[in-house]
C-alpha cells in the first residue's frame, strides 16, 4: 500500500462529510465461459472513501476491476463481502426498497454515451421519464435550463440518440445525471469514446459542475493525463486490488510501484492533453 491518504490529501478533506465509504470490498465473478467452480475476485479487498466535493480517480489497466468496483459501490451491482456505506447508510442493512430510494443520490456516466441512452427515446421523453420517477428531486430546473447547464441548445430536446454526436450524447447523459441532483457522480471513462477536443470540454464541464453543485466525483480512467488534471486523490488498481493511493500529484510524480510507473509511461502525448484541459 502507498502513503496514508489523509496526510497527503487536502487538509480540508478530513473535515468534509463522508459520501462513500468502502471497506474490504470483494466482488467475486464467475470466470467468463468457465466452469461453475471457476470463480475469481474481480475486486479483492478494496477500501476507499470519497468525501463531499472531492474528485477522486481510480486508475488501472483494462480488466483491473474498476467498473466492477464502481457498480458495487453504487449499489447497481452485487458485492460478495465487505462493507459499502453510502451517505452513512450501510448498504447491507437496507432493504431493496430503501436502496432504490437511495439510488438517485449516486448517478453514473459511462464510456459509451450512445449506449447510455435508450435508442427509442427522444431527449425530452427521457427527461420526462426521469421527472416522473423522481418528481420532487427533479423540479429544480426545466428542460431548457438543464440543457443550458451542460452547454447544449434546447433545439436538441426532440432529437433521438442516433441524431446526437458523441459529445452531445455524453452531455445529455451528464444532464440526466445532474437532473437528479446527486451527491456523487461516478464517471466510468466518460471521455474515452470521444474526440480529444470534445474530451477536454466534457472534463471542463465536470469540473465546473463540481464547483457549482458541490457534487463529489469518482472518476474512473486509464488516461493519467486526464486524471492528473481533474482529481484531488487517486487510487491505483491492479488485478482487483488497490496497490497505491494518495494525493494525485504525489502518486503521479513519485510513483512507488513499478506498475504505476508503467501506467504513467504508457500515456502518449499527455502534455498536449493536459494543456488542452487547462486551457
Amino acid at each position: 500500500m502507498g502513503r496514508d491518504a489523509d496526510t497527503s490529501a487536502a487538509v480540508t478533506a478530513a473535515s468534509r462529510e463522508r459520501i462513500v465509504g468502502v471497506s474490504d470490498l470483494t466482488v467475486v465473478h464467475q470466470r467468463r465461459g468457465g466452469g461453475r467452480g471457476e470463480r475469481f475476485a474481480a475486486v479483492d479487498g478494496v477500501s476507499l472513501h470519497l468525501d463531499a466535493g472531492e474528485v477522486v480517480s481510480v486508475v488501472g489497466e483494462s480488466g483491473s476491476g474498476k467498473t466492477t468496483l464502481a457498480m458495487a459501490l453504487t449499489a447497481l451491482g452485487a458485492h460478495t463481502s465487505g462493507m459499502v456505506e453510502l451517505l452513512g447508510h450501510d448498504l447491507a442493512r437496507l432493504s431493496q426498497r430503501q436502496i432504490r430510494a437511495l439510488r438517485p443520490e449516486v448517478q453514473v456516466i459511462f464510456q459509451d454515451p450512445h449506449g447510455s441512452l435508450d435508442p427509442r427515446q427522444s431527449v425530452k421523453a427521457g427527461f420526462k421519464e426521469l421527472r416522473g420517477l423522481q418528481p420532487q428531486r427533479t423540479s429544480w430546473i426545466d428542460d431548457a435550463g438543464l440543457l443550458a447547464q451542460v452547454r447544449l441548445s434546447p433545439d436538441l430536446l426532440d432529437r433521438y440518440p442516433h441524431q446526437l454526436s458523441g459529445g452531445q450524447a455524453q452531455r445529455v447523459c451528464i444532464a440526466r445525471a445532474l437532473l437528479m441532483r446527486p451527491r456523487v457522480l461516478v464517471a466510468d471513462e466518460p471521455t474515452s469514446g470521444l474526440d480529444v477536443s470534445v474530451q477536454a470540454e466534457v472534463l471542463r464541464l465536470l469540473l465546473e459542475l463540481r464547483e457549482s453543485t458541490g457534487v463529489a466525483i469518482l472518476f474512473i480512467s486509464h488516461d493519467l493525463s486526464v486524471v492528473r488534471r481533474i482529481s484531488d486523490r487517486v487510487y491505483v488498481m491492479r488485478r482487483g486490488r488497490v496497490i497505491e493511493q494518495g494525493a494525485t500529484q504525489a502518486v503521479l510524480d513519485a510513483p512507488q510501484e513499478p506498475y504505476t510507473r508503467q501506467l504513467i509511461a504508457a500515456v502518449p502525448g499527455r502534455t498536449l492533453r493536459t494543456a488542452q484541459v487547462a486551457a
Binding site: 453504487t74 447497481l76 439510488r103 438517485p104 447510455s116 420517477l133 423522481q134
Partner: peptide, 21 residues
C-alpha cells in the same frame, strides 16, 4: 446496456425497465 443501469440509478423499477425499455 448502460442505459438500463442509468435508469436503475434513477430509481426505475424492474417492471418499468422491462416493459418500457
Amino acid at each position: 446496456r448502460q442505459f438500463v443501469l442509468g435508469l436503475r440509478a434513477a430509481g426505475a423499477s424492474s417492471a418499468r425497465i422491462v416493459l418500457r425499455h
